[in-house]
């Protein structure tokens, strides 16, 4: 499969890269590992006039730095580098689970980056197809059209979903991102960075680059986990996923954050289902109750936009959430 023509630009440093992007704007696309962009370019889902390679910026924009009260992860860090960082392996097992669930080892090493995973486009059974396959359908909202195929006649917006494993777990961890342009930089919580609009899933201006991910330092009593449901153990995007970050102090839950993947255009944060856990001990009954509420909260989002039936995915929400909460609680209490 050949790629359509585009110019290839490989700036030497960050300032030059940002100037180029400001100049080209939406006509150019950032090229990191390429595992999302180039597939979509081959399928005709995106047609940049130029790609701006980040390869020369990788040394400066990769690696994990421990600062006084937070962790600073370069967006160009490959999944392999992140997975092999002792702090992530030891203190953030949920993040390690999410990153190792992306693709497969021979993609994780050089190709796929953490920042690229956050900037990956939302996906849908009717969108991520070849140009030939799509030729039989009218263009949907995400392709600039006026309808949503799985959403049906009453749909007023794109119903594609976020299937990025890293995005879901980092949202559960309350991470934020640093976006830089030649005009300056801003920091955004991931819950704001992900817009919830399938047509434009990330709040990233045409002249901006995601340079860093900021994580809270893991506190004592924090337990994290990531549960992914997919057809195969490698390569597949999740049909449903759940990232959980639970903090237990003195036997009581003091913080409970949970995000679902493959449900909504952004990682779906289930705050109202988790808040009742605060101040309670993480007993199986309490966790099951929160999981049941999560299932009720997620149900309206389920439509036939992925390769597993919506009814099955809806049934699996409380299952995945209960597994995630149980594992996170076990880890919060010192287990593995």
């Amino acid at each position: 499969m050949s790629l359509p023509y585009f110019e290839y630009l490989a700036p030497q440093g960050l300032a030059e890269a940002l100037e180029l992007k400001a100049l080209w704007g939406q006509r150019a696309a950032w090229l990191s590992g390429g595992s999302d962009l180039l597939v979509r370019a081959k399928q005709g889902l995106v047609s940049p006039e130029a790609v701006i390679s980040l390869k020369n910026l990788s040394p400066k924009l990769s690696g994990l730095r421990e600062e006084a009260d937070h962790l600073r992860l370069g967006a160009q860090t490959t999944l392999h580098q992140a997975l092999n960082h002792p702090l992530i392996a030891r203190e953030l097992p949920g993040l390690a689970e999410a990153l190792s669930a992306i693709g497969a080892p021979t993609l994780q090493q050089r190709v796929a980056t953490v920042g690229g995973n956050l900037c990956a486009q939302t996906r849908c059974l009717h969108y991520n197809q070849s140009a030939l396959w799509r030729a039989g359908l009218a263009p949907c909202f995400k392709l600039g059209g006026e309808l949503c195929h799985p959403g049906g006649a009453t749909a007023d917006r794109c119903r594609s979903t976020c299937q990025s494993d890293g995005a879901v777990m980092l949202t559960a961890l309350g991470a934020s991102v640093v976006l830089q342009s030649s005009a300056g930089q801003r920091a955004l919580a991931l819950s704001d960075f992900f817009t919830g609009q399938g047509e434009r899933p990330q709040d990233l201006a045409p002249d901006e680059l995601l340079t860093h991910i900021i994580l809270e330092r893991p506190e004592p009593g924090l337990g994290t986990t990531y549960i992914k449901m997919a057809s195969r153990g490698a390569m597949d995007f999740p049909l449903l996923s759940a990232g959980a970050a639970l903090r237990v102090e003195g036997g009581l839950v003091t913080s409970a954050r949970l995000a679902l993947g493959a449900v909504f255009a952004a990682p779906l944060v289930l705050k109202t289902a988790m808040d009742p856990l605060l101040g309670l001990p993480p007993t199986p009954e309490n966790l099951a109750q929160a999981a049941a509420q999560a299932g009720r909260d997620a149900a309206p989002f389920m439509i036939e936009n992925h390769s597993a039936p919506a009814a099955w995915r809806a049934q699996m929400v409380p299952v995945a959430v209960e597994r995630a909460l149980a594992k996170a609680a076990q880890r919060a209490l010192g287990g593995v």
Partner: peptide, 24 residues
């Protein structure tokens, strides 16, 4: 499209999908 792995080569000693890697 990067799924099957048959095009894998080593670039700078690291595996890459040659079908999803621009030569440049």
């Amino acid at each position: 499209e990067g799924v099957c792995g048959a095009c894998t080569v080593l670039v700078d000693n690291q595996p890459r999908r040659a079908c999803l890697t621009l030569a440049l």
